[in-house]
Computed example of a mutant assay.
Amino acid sequence: MSRYLLNKFLFTVDRDPALVERYRSEPAELVTWWEGTVANSLLNSHTGEASTWLAFTAEERAALTAHDHVKLFELGAHPFLTLTLFIALFERDNTEPLEYQKAYGAKLAHLSLPYPDIAT
């Protein structure tokens, strides 16, 4: 399991509107594409350097594909990264102010301290 890789996925997808739309409409395809092309590149590097060992576990891939922010948090993904990306994905489906954010929090309400470790 790599919390770094989960957080890198959330961070990089959230910053590209085209990737946000692909993740919304075809999450499995985007996760597979991202893992194969972006996962092992160095974050914010333009030198062409890359690693070769980073990959999602089956559990991480399933949570990303299902847009399961609760499972992602349990796996150690940073809650602010999931929240900002998931707002971009789903807030447009709600009509009330902060409706999505409240639902997001309510789904995490069963968790109590100590929270899962989100350090990378």
Rank of each mutant, 00 (worst) to 15 (best):
L30Y: 02
L30R: 00
L30D: 02
L30V: 03
L30K: 00
L30F: 02
L30E: 01
V31H: 00
V31C: 01
V31A: 02
V31S: 01
V31P: 00
T32P: 00
T32H: 07
W33K: 12
W33D: 05
W33C: 05
W33R: 10
W34I: 09
W34L: 07
W34K: 12
E35F: 01
E35H: 05
E35K: 02
G36A: 13
G36M: 14
G36W: 11
T37N: 10
T37L: 11
T37P: 02
V38Y: 00
N40T: 06
N40Q: 04
N40S: 05
N40R: 05
N40P: 03
S41F: 15
S41V: 15
S41I: 15
S41M: 14
S41H: 15
L42E: 08
L42P: 03
L42G: 11
L42N: 04
L42K: 10
L43E: 10
L43A: 11
N44I: 12
N44Q: 13
N44P: 07
N44S: 12
N44H: 14
N44E: 14
S45I: 05
S45D: 14
H46D: 12
H46L: 11
H46V: 14
H46P: 03
T47R: 15
T47F: 11
G48E: 05
G48L: 04
G48H: 02
E49S: 02
E49K: 11
E49P: 01
E49Y: 11
E49M: 01
A50N: 15
A50C: 15
A50M: 15
A50V: 12
S51I: 13
S51H: 15
T52F: 10
T52M: 08
T52Y: 08
T52S: 13
T52E: 10
W53C: 12
W53Y: 13
W53Q: 07
W53A: 12
L54R: 14
L54D: 11
L54E: 12
A55H: 11
A55R: 12
F56E: 05
F56T: 07
F56H: 06
T57E: 04
T57M: 00
T57Q: 01
T57D: 00
A58I: 01
A58R: 05
E59T: 08
E59L: 10
E60T: 09
E60P: 08
E60S: 08
E60Y: 07
E60Q: 14
E60R: 09
R61Y: 02
A62D: 05
A62F: 04
A63H: 01
A63M: 04
A63T: 01
A63Q: 03
A63C: 09
L64G: 02
L64P: 01
L64H: 01
L64T: 00
T65S: 07
T65E: 06
T65C: 06
T65P: 03
T65L: 09
A66W: 09
A66Q: 08
A66V: 08
A66Y: 06
H67I: 06
H67E: 08
H67V: 09
H67M: 11
H67A: 12
D68Q: 07
D68I: 05
D68N: 09
D68P: 04
H69W: 03
H69V: 04
H69K: 00
V70P: 06
V70F: 13
V70E: 13
V70Y: 13
K71I: 09
K71L: 10
K71V: 15
K71H: 05
K71P: 07
K71A: 14
F73P: 06
F73M: 07
F73N: 04
F73Y: 14
E74G: 09
E74K: 15
E74I: 09
E74H: 10
E74C: 13
E74Q: 14
